[in-house]
Simulated scan of single mutants.
Amino acid sequence: MALVEDVFTGDISSITTIPETALGNGIIYMKADGVISGIKVAEEVFKQVDANLEIKLKATDGTHVKKGQAVIEITGSLRSILTGERVALNFLQRMSGIATKTHLMVTLIQDYPCTVVDTRKTTPLLRILEKQAVRDGGGKNHRFGLYDAVMIKDNHIKAAGGIMNAVQSARKQIPHTMKIEVEVENLQQVEEAIESKCDIIMLDNMDVNMMEAAVKRIAGKAIVEASGGVNENNIVEIANTGVNYISLGSLTHSIESLDISLDLYEKKVII
C-alpha cells in the first residue's frame, strides 16, 4: 500500500532520466547514532519493487548503530533502487526513531524492577511495525488492540455506573484467561479498583506522591501500571515508586525519526 501511494503508475523521474539497463548499487547508511529497526521491512520494500535486486543486510534489528555505518546494500537496477528508496527509508527512519527512544527510556530505569511498555497511540495501519520497533528498543508491548484485553477507562466507568459495575460485568462475559485493567485517577478509585479484584490498576496522570501512596495501598493485590505525562525527566522518579509497568504513548505518537540516507554508486562498493 505504501508503494502504491508513492509510486502509483510509475516513478516518472527515474524512468525519464535513467536508462532502463543502468546498473549500480546503493548504500543505506546512518547519519546519526541510534538503535536500528525496520531492516527487514526495508528489505521487503526493495523486493516488492524488483525481485531481481540483490540485497545485503549489514545490521540486525535491535542493534546499536553508529553515524556513518552502512546498514543495507542494494545492487541491481538503478531505477528500481531509486523507486524503492523513499518508502524504505520512511519505514526505516520512523521505526529506528521509535526503537532509539524506547531504548533511552529502558536504559534510564534499568536498575528498577519496572518495564517500559507502549500504548495504542500508533499510526493507523502501522501498529504492528511500530510495536515491533518498541520491542527492538528493549520495551514490551501493551495490548495490540481493543480485542485482546479489557481496559476500563474513565468513560467506561461513567457509562457503566462505576468501577465495580464495570469489572463485574466484564468478568461475567470474558474467558478466565483474559485480564481486566482499570484506569484510576485518585486514591478513592484505587480503593474501588482493589475491591473489584481487577488484575491491573493503571495510575493515570498521578503525581509521584499519590503514586507512592497508591502502590503502598495496592500492596501486590494487583499489577500496577503508571501512565500519563511520562518523559525522560521523570521516568526514574516514577519507577522508584514501585510500579510494575510504565506505559508511554510518546514512544510512538511523538517520535523523531532517526536520520538515515541512501547514496548511489555507479560501481559496486563495499562499506
Rank of each mutant, 00 (worst) to 15 (best):
E73N: 11
A2V: 03
V116Q: 06
T122A: 04
I271Q: 12
I223V: 15
A32I: 03
H103F: 11
R143G: 03
K179E: 09
E54Q: 14
G145A: 07
K131T: 03
I36V: 15
S227M: 09
I223S: 04
A170P: 02
L125F: 14
Q110S: 15
K268L: 10
Q48M: 14
Q69E: 15
S227G: 03
L3D: 00
M105W: 07
N90V: 03
N25C: 15
H64E: 10
N244T: 00
V134A: 08
I98Q: 03
M1R: 05
S254Y: 11
V208C: 01
H64I: 10
S250G: 12
G10I: 12
A70T: 02
F46T: 13
H253G: 02
N141V: 08
G242A: 04
R79E: 05
T102H: 02
K56A: 12
K47E: 15
V49K: 06
D199K: 10
V4D: 11
T122G: 03
V87S: 06
T107V: 05
I18Y: 06
L262M: 15
R79T: 07
E130K: 03
K153E: 00
R135G: 00
S14E: 13
N25W: 03
L203T: 11
A219W: 06
K221N: 13
R86I: 00
N244V: 02
D50P: 01
T75Y: 00
S80I: 09
G62R: 13
D61T: 05
H253I: 01
H64R: 13
S77R: 01
T122Q: 08
I36A: 05
V243E: 05
K66A: 15
L108C: 01
V184L: 12
A51G: 13
G228Q: 09
Q69V: 08
G38A: 00
I15E: 10
T60P: 00
V150H: 00
G34K: 09
K197N: 15
R143H: 12
M105D: 06
N25F: 06
T75R: 04
D111P: 01
